[in-house]
């Protein structure tokens, strides 16, 4: 037994998300918040708008969290955080991380004005969008983060979503904020490392975290991390960071880019797609990936 090899724990053991919360089985958003708080630590305030996490935390007067949370209005994740940061600064608590923790609907749709405003002012907040690609908390309605072709309750199979996913990362890059990153629950060390880096940067920092939702994607809970990993490996959701809107750096280099077929097959929301649809999706993934590669090469 003396020869036993032990795996090395690469993340802090401290937990700020308690057990017994109301997340669904296999919830990507639950994992995502666990990981980012391991990097940010206890001196953190979360501003949570309407999203799955408005419920996961637990009903009043309970909370599963060991950091403070302010549940704010749907479109105010950024503006509330801006105010909290200003207030804390005035009271001398200048070393706190003020985090907007919002879903894709609250970020790409209803909250984009406030987010753009905060980014333009370079307010000293960390805005994190956990992206499960639809309004999952209200019952799987399409958002502008929903991929083209996906079934949702407002894009039924007969009238599927025909629009492509909004490129929020390019929008944020256009704001020239000091730091932004994409991240995935399948790459916790990468997420942790980038959040640590962001923590020590002043100004607006933006994270876009890919967070599968078994309930809304009609996938198996045990496949959540696998799906997130596949989305990185097939270049559907590349992991990178950008500083000041330029200098894109790929964090996970992909040697053998895989087709998206296997990724789609594991999800009921894509079951209706025909080979031509899948081909079209593949072409879009390829186009996006090539664009990222060009930016990574500085052209």
């Amino acid at each position: 037994m003396s020869q036993e090899k032990k795996m090395k724990l690469t993340l802090p053991v401290e937990e700020y998300v308690g057990s017994g919360n109301l997340a669904c089985q296999g919830c990507g958003a639950n994992l995502a918040l666990r990981y980012i708080l391991k990097a940010l630590g206890p001196k953190t305030v979360l501003c949570i708008p309407a999203c799955c996490w408005a419920v996961i935390d637990g009903p009043f007067p309970h909370s599963c969290m060991s950091v403070s949370i302010y549940h704010c209005a749907f479109e105010t994740a950024a503006s509330t955080a801006t105010g909290v940061k200003a207030g804390l600064d005035m009271l001398g608590d200048t070393d706190m991380n003020v985090v907007s923790w919002a879903g894709d609907g609250g970020t790409l749709d209803i909250g984009i004005q406030a987010l753009s405003g905060a980014a333009e002012r370079n307010d000293d907040i960390i805005y994190v969008c956990y992206d499960n690609e639809a309004y999952m908390n209200t019952g799987i309605q399409r958002s502008s983060a929903t991929p083209k072709g996906a079934w949702t309750t407002t894009t039924p199979v007969k009238f599927p979503k025909v629009e492509s996913k909004k490129d929020i990362d390019a929008i944020m890059a256009a704001h020239r904020i000091p730091y932004q990153a994409t991240a995935s629950i399948a790459y916790p060390e990468d997420l942790y490392k980038k959040m640590l880096k962001a923590k020590n940067i002043k100004g607006t920092r933006f994270f876009h975290i890919f967070a599968p939702c078994p309930t809304g994607w009609k996938s198996r809970p045990e496949d959540a991390v696998k799906l997130a990993r596949m989305a990185v490996q097939n270049c559907l959701f590349p992991l990178y960071e950008i500083e000041h809107g330029e200098n894109l750096a790929l964090n996970i280099k992909i040697q053998n880019k895989k087709p998206i077929d296997d990724y789609l097959k594991l999800q009921g929301r894509f079951r209706h797609l025909k080979p031509a649809d899948i081909q079209s999706m593949q072409e879009e993934v390829d186009r996006n990936w090539n664009r990222i590669l060009k930016k990574a090469q500085g052209c």
Binding site: A78, G83, L88, M90
Partner: peptide
């Protein structure tokens, strides 16, 4: 960038104790 954000920011600052 809007009055909606103005009040949201005031609320955030107020809950921070300002």
């Amino acid at each position: 960038e809007s009055e909606h954000s103005a009040m949201a920011a005031c609320i955030g600052a107020s809950v921070a104790g300002a």
